[in-house]
């Protein structure tokens, strides 16, 4: 059965696109057919993070408006042949996305893929609404920081009222993905703890992604972190999160990057 997953947050810069790429790739690693869809019209970036930026010919808007077929716009990943990217348009604006057009494309995507992962734009406007509209499951990406938690709370309210599932009176499944977490700082009382964020937002936890250099390294080379540096702490955290999405029961841990002796000695970064 096909599942539509929205990756959303309200606030920008918390890791929606990184998480979409990492989880999409992690789901595809187990042989499932996955499409990652960029809804950030005008500011597309999923293609870049996935390393497919030079292969974009048609985009989501072209398909929504009937100017291209879905198959023409989907870009197959070079590393995993069950992973596809549907890029957003860089030149058009979000008004080009029509409610009916998006509904048609989502229906078609459902018929071809096991997972359709929608990367939502930041904000609570039309683009974000359309990205979550058809979702069966939502991942709320949150940083352990006050403004991100507040915006996530707002987005949770929208997921519970503005999605098709909510309008049908069904329960909207939501999961918290806590990103850029620093367990040591949380322990010192300088960062909200996992438990604090969970208590405030009261949705189930999908994973804790530790702050790590591996994330930037991955986007630098245009590869999901779960494919390029599979042993890194965030990759392991994302791989676990993807397995939890598939219903597996995996104990929650905060993976740590394995550090060499020298970096342990001198590697304390200024924060």
């Amino acid at each position: 059965m096909s599942q539509v997953l929205v990756v959303t947050s309200g606030k920008g810069g918390v890791g929606k696109t990184t998480s979409t790429a990492a989880i999409g790739a992690a789901l595809a690693l187990s042989g499932q057919r996955v499409a990652v869809v960029d809804f950030d019209v005008g500011l597309r970036n999923l293609d870049l993070v996935m390393g497919a930026e030079r292969r974009v010919v048609y985009d989501l808007i072209n398909v929504v408006q009937g100017e291209a077929k879905l198959q023409q716009a989907l870009i197959r990943d070079k590393r995993l042949d069950t992973l596809y990217v549907l890029p957003a348009s860089q030149t058009r604006d979000k008004d080009a996305l029509t409610e009916e057009g998006v509904a048609r494309v989502m229906e078609e995507l459902r018929s071809h893929f096991d997972w359709v992962v929608c990367d939502s734009p930041a904000g609570i406007e039309r683009g974000a609404m359309l990205a979550m509209r058809h979702a069966d499951v939502a991942i709320v990406v949150t940083n352990p920081e006050v403004s991100s938690v507040r915006d996530s709370d707002r987005i949770i309210g929208m997921l519970d009222s503005k999605t098709l599932k909510a309008e049908r009176g069904e329960y909207m499944e939501k999961h918290l993905l806590l990103t850029r977490y620093d367990a040591a700082r949380a322990e010192r009382g300088q960062m909200l703890k996992v438990e604090d964020v969970l208590e405030i937002l009261s949705i189930p936890l999908l994973g804790i992604i530790p702050e790590s250099e591996a994330v930037l390294n991955a986007s630098n080379v245009g590869c999901p972190v779960t494919l390029v540096d599979t042993d890194s702490a965030p990759a392991r955290a994302y791989l676990d999160a993807a397995r939890r999405l598939e219903g597996e029961n995996i104990p929650m841990v905060v993976p740590a990057d394995r550090r060499g002796f020298m970096s342990k000695l001198f590697g304390r970064r200024a924060a």
Partner: peptide
């Protein structure tokens, strides 16, 4: 170091 996280939690709540 100052423990600012409890302040953040209370303000958010």
């Amino acid at each position: 170091p100052s423990r600012s996280a409890p302040v953040a939690r209370d303000r958010l709540q």
